[in-house]
Nucleic acid binder design. Structure first.
Lengths: 76, 76
DNA sequence: TGGGATTTGTTCGTATGTATC
DNA sequence: TGATACATACGAACAAATCCC
């Protein structure tokens, strides 16, 4: 899936859905690390602010946990 | 004081007055940090845009100074 | 012990678009 | 029309935690 700035769906929600799909499909299994914020910024050509908003959604859903200085991981 | 959207006084002016009172009463002394934008957003249930407009008024009055990446402080 | 690199956490700066009054 | 208010999105700076050499 490609992030589309022109879509009515905000970029941060689109990214959250991409990552959600990776988790629910099993491409990212329990305990697996998500890509770092900086790599998501580069890969998708979006800002860190937007990446973090996407992560906020996943955290709120209990799909991932984040540890400062370490990274974000798929919830077991 | 509670922020009242229905009031004839704009929300950003109401918030500025709340913070002005905190400063002039001494609850926020010289050099003291004001609450961050994000905490004011959450505490009052208003947008960052509105918080920043309030801060603009206080800065224009010389009551506070703001430093990027740090915060906003009561002017000494 | 120390220092550098990586990563997340928090803060303010700026711009644009939308909606409402 | 203009002022107000919210949401989105990009930057920039600094702090804190972790890891590794």
């Amino acid at each position: 899936m490609v992030i589309n700035h022109a879509s009515a769906v905000p970029v941060y929600r689109q990214l959250a859905q991409v990552l959600r799909d990776d988790i629910e499909s099993g491409r990212l299994g329990p305990g697996a690390p998500l890509p770092s914020e900086s790599s998501l910024v580069q890969e998708h050509g979006i800002s860190r602010d937007t990446v973090r908003k996407a992560m906020d959604l996943l955290r709120a859903d209990g799909l991932v946990i984040t540890v400062q200085g370490k990274g974000t991981y798929v919830q077991n």
